[in-house]
Design a protein around this nucleic acid. Structure first.
Lengths: 223, 223
DNA sequence: GGGAATATTCCC
DNA sequence: GGGAATATTCCC
């Protein structure tokens, strides 16, 4: 009897194989192009049947395989279909994302490279500007130094002249000490006059400068 | 007879099927898990057999399928094998190229990063240089300003002294116009004496300076 | 002829 | 159990 070889479980929600040898020779032959129990099980696995140990022994079950409900059989699908479809989709998705990411990196790299190029150019200009500024600064230092030397020389000459005049006036003062005091007074009057008459534009007559003739200590301040 | 159903061509380089029906029922059954001529042809195609019209009729040939040479049969390969091999190779190639491209980006990124590091260092140096230049510039401004103040002060004092001397000489000139020429001569003697007697350390007596009293044209050189 | 789905086999 | 090769079927 076929029931001694393979049959439904008590609940009619799974089936049990009692005799593999007889199943191969008497049953599979009639339904498949083979008579191998292993091929049969392979197909069960492909269609998502599960081999479970129950109180009745090892049974094969599938949620949509039940006694008396043939209409549910259409819900039994090959797992590989979904799997391979999902796998394919996943692979495609993966490749696609990788490609997208790579494109982002590409754009990013190009952008950064352009930025770097611009920065390099800016840097070059700045370095040239800086170099130019340094040159100008050195030149300015040189000019100022030379001006200083020139001015010092001229002041030295002025000092010499004033020294000479000082000696001259001293010797005159010695010959007539009276005249000096007189001339000082007279000078101050004259000083006031010149301020009114034709003022020298380079002289600040209201300054707190030294007494003009007291130039000995004044000369010291030059050197 | 089997020769009435399927047989070698005259040259033994191909075979002819004379009777499809009998082939299915009497032959295929024994060699395959089916008895369909179409499935048989499908397999021939998969193994790269070609259906050719010869003078003997339609024949199936494959370069490695010849009468009496069983050893050549191993060279008969499933075309799909090559196909899938090629496909695999193509996929691999694709992945490899993508990987190469990715490596290029990687190197590029490293290069850019190095460039950025260098730029940052250059920038830092430039900023320091710039900062230094600004300091020097400020210092220079300060020096020039002080020099200017110093020079103005000295000119003011010189101006005052010259003004005073001018007044002094004017009054002497007025009292005796003859004395002026005399005093010029006398001053030059005095000048020589002071050189020998107590030389002013700030005066270079051997300089090519102007005649001390010839200060009118000398003053012009100042302004 | 051959692509694609499914079945069978082989093997880990 | 399930991956992978191969076979068979179905369909364009």
């Amino acid at each position: 009897m076929s029931e001694d070889i393979i049959s439904w479980t008590n609940q009619g929600t799974a089936f049990i194989v009692y005799n593999q040898d007889l199943l191969e020779k008497n049953v599979l032959q009639n339904y498949f192009k083979h008579s191998n129990y292993s091929s049969f099980v392979r197909q069960l696995n492909l269609y998502n049947f599960k081999k479970v140990k129950s109180n009745e022994g090892f049974i094969f079950r599938n949620n949509f395989f039940r006694k008396g409900t043939k209409s549910m059989l259409q819900l039994i699908k090959k797992r590989n279909q979904e799997d391979s479809a999902i796998q394919f989709a996943v692979q495609g998705e993966h490749a696609s994302r990788q490609k997208q990411e790579q494109n982002l990196f590409k754009e990013c790299a190009i952008d950064i490279k352009q930025t770097n190029t611009n920065l390099k150019e800016d840097m070059k200009l700045l370095q040239e500007t800086s170099s130019c500024l340094i040159d100008q600064m050195q030149n300015l230092n040189y000019v100022i130094y030379n001006q200083n030397v020139d001015i010092e020389l001229k002041f030295k000459q002025v000092g010499q002249m004033l020294q000479a005049i000082n000696e001259e006036l001293k010797s005159e003062k010695q010959s007539d000490s009276q005249t000096l005091n007189q001339s000082l007074v007279r000078k101050e009057d004259c000083y006031q006059d010149s301020k009114v008459g034709s003022p020298n534009p380079y002289v600040d007559y209201n300054s707190t400068a030294l007494n003009p003739l007291d130039y000995e200590c004044f000369l010291d301040s030059f050197f």
